[in-house]
Design a protein around this nucleic acid. Structure first.
Lengths: 216, 216
DNA sequence: AGATGTGAATGAGTTCACAGCT
DNA sequence: AGCTGTGAACTCATTCACATCT
């Protein structure tokens, strides 16, 4: 089975919604109910889910727990994936805390930094190790995912080192283009895009506003 | 003119590519050239750009500087948008630095925090102010955008305060659903989805791997 | 010649309506 | 009766091929 990114994304949304329902002790839900509750499209939910198998009960709806299980499994979110942060600056430290809370599917178990001043710092339950020990760290913890939060010019080198160390996937938060090998998928995240998206909905700029240098 | 999000997104990409070309002192580029250089689709570039006006010169291509200008203007990225960070924890501090570098279109000029220990800290060129002064801060700096990097339960309250203070748009990095008013668009960013997207490409989990608690 | 701008063809994704279970 | 699962209709997006302009 192969999920298009667009469907995959929706399934993640459904899963989150279902988990919210679990917390509220809701055990059965119809596509209609899900749609209204979380502003989704009922026919689309049915189509997406039907594509993966017959999870629903006609006349009743879906079993929240069962569907959560099945989706978790399909999305590979039913097991813990150990994560290492590469680069323990502010962003690295922030994400180490922030990303750990994905219903336990990811656990940031280690972090490395080149800067000796950062080595030894206690962050989100682990101690920062020197970059030189990356490979050992990955092997010690069976780490599957590396998260790059290093300066742009260090991104490629650290991607390579992560590949070498044996991770299966890399998330890159530094705004640098990194060349990836097919065996270790790389996902680039450019946080600037969100501001850019928002900018489009900002009011027309006054002529008195400051111009940006490069646009003149 | 109204841009679909999908096209808007591509235009942002084109703009970034063009800026790279500017740095390399390239002054003319064909849709073909852009496509090859940045792994885009040439007919799509032409279609997207043609929709906005006739920017190209037949037989030659596009003028890099002119196109950069036109796109910057269309995307409202030709003027400085002052930004305030709400919540100066690790994520707030990291983003204050990170988001400032959007070719100058956004400038993080202020930050507030509820915690008295954080007030007064020097971050990315400004001094953290107490949350109670949010409105004054927004007015002092003509701030257009607020970025929420507060704990989930504080998100809604701070969105409301940002609206009250007079910003035109809000970016929410906290994993909480916030109810927005139409006049002040809210963009939710859930960084967890990136890990989830990556998880799907990770190898089938071994049966010996630890299960996540909620998926049992 | 050579590259743009564009209508026409194709393909992907979404919605609809209803047949088929429970 | 009620809700799922699904083929058919529709809408939106992408690609193609070529007429058009420099």
């Amino acid at each position: 089975m192969d999920l298009s990114p667009i469907i995959h994304n929706r399934l993640c949304l459904y899963l989150r919604s279902l988990r919210r329902l679990q917390e509220e002790d809701v055990h059965k839900i119809s596509s209609q109910g899900l749609a209204e509750r979380f502003q989704l499209s009922a026919p689309q939910i049915r189509k997406d889910l039907a594509q993966l198998g017959e999870f629903g009960i006609r006349g009743v709806g879906y079993d929240v727990d069962e569907l959560t299980c099945r989706l978790s499994s399909i999305l590979r979110l039913d097991r813990v994936h150990p994560v290492v942060m590469v680069g323990m600056g502010n962003l690295g430290r922030a994400l180490a805390r922030y990303l750990g809370f994905n219903h336990g599917a990811f656990r940031v178990v280690a972090g490395v930094d080149k800067d000796p001043d950062k080595v030894g710092l206690q962050v989100a339950g682990f101690q920062v190790r020197p970059s030189s020990e990356l490979k050992r760290v990955v092997q010690e913890h069976d780490i599957e995912v590396g998260v790059l939060t290093v300066p742009p010019d260090a991104a490629q080198g650290n991607y390579n080192r992560l590949v070498e160390a044996g991770v299966s996937g890399v998330l890159n938060f530094s705004p640098a283009r990194v060349q990836a090998v097919p065996e270790v998928p790389l996902k680039d995240i450019d946080l600037r895009i969100y501001l850019e998206q928002l900018a489009y909905f900002l009011p027309e700029s006054d002529s008195e506003k400051e111009l940006v240098s490069s646009a003149s």
